[in-house]
């Protein structure tokens, strides 16, 4: 079966995100009342797996072993 996993990767809350801070400053320059910005990335993977449960496990493994670094990042998976 074919699946599409959308993996969202974000810096952990306790890890400083200088990119987010720069973006926050830029958004404030638009006159907006910005409290905080966190940046991350979205990775979309199309793949095959025997069933939905295996697909979910494999997508977790992608996040765990490569797409996110558990030292600094959290990730979440949407399976479609």
């Amino acid at each position: 079966m074919n699946f599409t996993a959308t993996i969202h990767v974000r810096p952990k809350d306790e890890v400083r995100d200088p990119q987010g801070e720069a973006v926050a400053g830029a958004l404030r320059s638009l006159g907006l009342d910005i409290a905080d910005v966190r940046t991350g990335k979205e990775i979309v993977v199309r793949f095959s797996a025997v069933d939905r449960a295996s697909a979910a496990r494999e997508a977790e493994r992608m996040g765990d072993q490569l797409l996110a670094n558990p030292v600094i990042e959290d990730f979440s998976v949407e399976l479609g």
């Binding site: 810096p11 890890v15 400083r16 200088p18 990119q19 720069a22 670094n69 030292v71 600094i72």
Partner: peptide
């Protein structure tokens, strides 16, 4: 080697960007 787990921690974007 940090990514590989041979040393602790990680290297991220310089705070000054």
């Amino acid at each position: 080697v940090c990514e590989a787990g041979l040393l602790p921690g990680a290297l991220v974007r310089n705070t000054g960007l």
